[in-house]
Design a binder for these strands. Sequence first.
DNA 1: GGGGCCATGTAACCCGTTACATGATTGA
DNA 2: TCAATCATGTAACGGGTTACATGGCCCC
Lengths: 188, 188
Amino acid sequence: MDVKTLCLGVLTLGDASGYEIRKQFEEGPFAHFFGASYGSIYPALAQLLNDGFVTVTEHPQEGKPDKKIYRLTPQGRDHFADALKSVPAPDKFRSETLVHLFFAELMTPEHLSAVIDAYFEHFRAMSGFMKTLDPAGIPPGRMFVRGIGETFYSTMADFMETNRDRVLADVAEANANAPKSRIPEAAE
Amino acid sequence: MDVKTLCLGVLTLGDASGYEIRKQFEEGPFAHFFGASYGSIYPALAQLLNDGFVTVTEHPQEGKPDKKIYRLTPQGRDHFADALKSVPAPDKFRSETLVHLFFAELMTPEHLSAVIDAYFEHFRAMSGFMKTLDPAGIPPGRMFVRGIGETFYSTMADFMETNRDRVLADVAEANANAPKSRIPEAAE
DNA sequence: GGGGCCATGTAACCCGTTACATGATTGA
DNA sequence: TCAATCATGTAACGGGTTACATGGCCCC
């Protein structure tokens, strides 16, 4: 699923400008499971216009470029509905924090604890934020996704909190028992 | 963190060929939080060799290209340890399934349930797989990451299982109450 | 005064994936 | 017989990010 299709999806929720769409990908609900920046959104919108999937209305403004509000056409809506008929591609997850943690024994204790604490703090903040969200008027699909997010963030925060001290101790102990660097001796 | 650095990390666990490294990214532990294919691994290895971070030993084979076993040099190890001193970049997560679910009301009930069931099944399988893993000899950092994975997969599987029927019903009801397509009427 | 937000857009670049090229061996 | 696994590597392509270009307004 590319940015073009996703823009269509965002426009399903209401008319918007490129700037506003980007905010959806940065602060809005999509930020949690998708990303897109200006460099991909503006060209995508231009193409969608060309494809007849959206229309524009220019709202003149002073001191700023004219605001261009995009609106979905019926064809655009159909096209998006068609895209939803596909089998979704597998999730993609990439975490530098987890590679750090995977190699915890190669890190200094200070940095290791800092990384874990930052990870915890991130999840805690996200989990807290989710709880502030008002469920009023949110359709069931969106509420389901929200529930997934809430569960995910709070579970991760809990995990970090309850395991933090133990890992730190275990890593320290492991390093005490097997000091110095050990260049792997592979079976020849 | 790029593929080059990650290869260094994999070689920390023992000597390996490009082919074996890729397997780590496809089936091994890294598959869960990082990805890399031949097209990025082989060039990365060539560069690493050039940088003096690894050495190669060619093992002639019949019928196949010579197997090239890469080994970390002390500089390579240092370079990797240095990389771990950085502040890890935020996690990147991209889920087409969640965008599908977000727009559940635009999907057919059949496809929606199929998508949810496939998602559940994926998490269930992953969670089950994690439980088969032997903890013997695994250092604490890796065990911590494994714990995160186990927790994540089982939590997600549980969530899907317990909420599946309710969402399906809620979405169906929402669509019954607000039938037909509604082109968004934005405030002008 | 300075930083941040509003607002659009382009161009260069980067990193990685996909597909291709080659080919033997093993197991279903 | 056909698919998969082993095994290395390249080239084309693609999609998205970063940085640049422009500039006024508003709040601290």
